[in-house]
Design a protein around this nucleic acid. Structure first.
Lengths: 145, 145
DNA sequence: GCATTATTGTAGCAATTGCAACAAAATAGT
DNA sequence: ACTATTTTGTTGCAATTGCTACAATAATGC
């Protein structure tokens, strides 16, 4: 396998990795220092909030979050223990469970957002103006869901 | 939820996170499936190769890789156990150690590159042409070291 | 010089993760 | 219908990580 990667591709890759790593670490630190749960909990809560009362199958959460199956299983375990989400058996598929957000879950998601937004600003957005952000978003479109 | 973050900033952030997560997971999987060590080993080896015979202090590796101190300590432990790097006491600072890459380490770094490059191509670069890669690299400049 | 504080690296312990095996149900093939 | 395969989710165990305390040295302040 001869490398067809150009120098500019390698540079772009290196910076992408570093940008995200640096920014995510910063955001995670900010959340932890505020006594808030990790980013992935926010993602799960947000997805569940978006779909509303129907809830999501764990398999769907898996796809949304890029987590492993067992990771979803355990995260939902913990969030359920905290009363943030509720599991119930799926009516159509006896293997699966449906996960729904609770009032408490919505409240937490809400409380997380200001800290999260501030951390995104601090660790990422402050480097850019609106035009640049739009160009970045456009370039990263291949990775949108 | 009022915040100073624009919608476009949020979109850019979401895609950045997803782009990197998806791509890094893909690359890590590819390396693992080829029986190669994780990405961070590559990074450490590359840094050590770049600085040549002088080696690096663990503290410097920490800065280069965005790892925690104890993570560096342990990664160097494992890499040393594999004979990929060598530790020696720092002449100027009796607290510190100097880490140098070994011949075996260079060989491994070399062997990792084709698999790594292929995975970057597959999980990232194939979405873009050279112009786009250049624009992306330019936009991500704030995160370059 | 001496006491205080900061830096560098390690290690114990608890929590978390990854791997692999598993159970149960659904789907596909014949 | 029946068997094989795939999908969904969980769990035990080993490996890894994060947190914290710690030891040793260096740098700073007086």
């Amino acid at each position: 396998m001869t490398s067809s990667l150009s120098d500019v591709a390698i540079t772009a890759w290196a910076r992408l990795v570093r940008a995200q790593q640096g920014a995510v670490v910063g955001v995670e630190d900010a959340l932890r220092n505020t006594g808030l749960p990790p980013l992935v909990w926010y993602d799960v809560l947000l997805e569940l909030e978006r779909v509303g009362g129907e809830g999501l199958r764990q398999r769907e959460i898996e796809r949304h979050t890029l987590l492993q199956r067992y990771s979803v299983s355990r995260i939902v375990d913990r969030m359920e223990a905290e009363g943030l989400v509720a599991r119930s058996p799926s009516p159509e598929d006896a293997r699966g469970t449906v996960v729904r957000i609770t009032r408490k879950g919505r409240a937490l998601r809400h409380r997380m957002w200001p800290a999260y937004a501030a951390a995104i600003e601090e660790n990422f957005a402050r480097h850019y103006n609106e035009t640049e952000l739009a160009r970045l978003a456009s370039l990263l479109k291949p990775f949108a869901r």
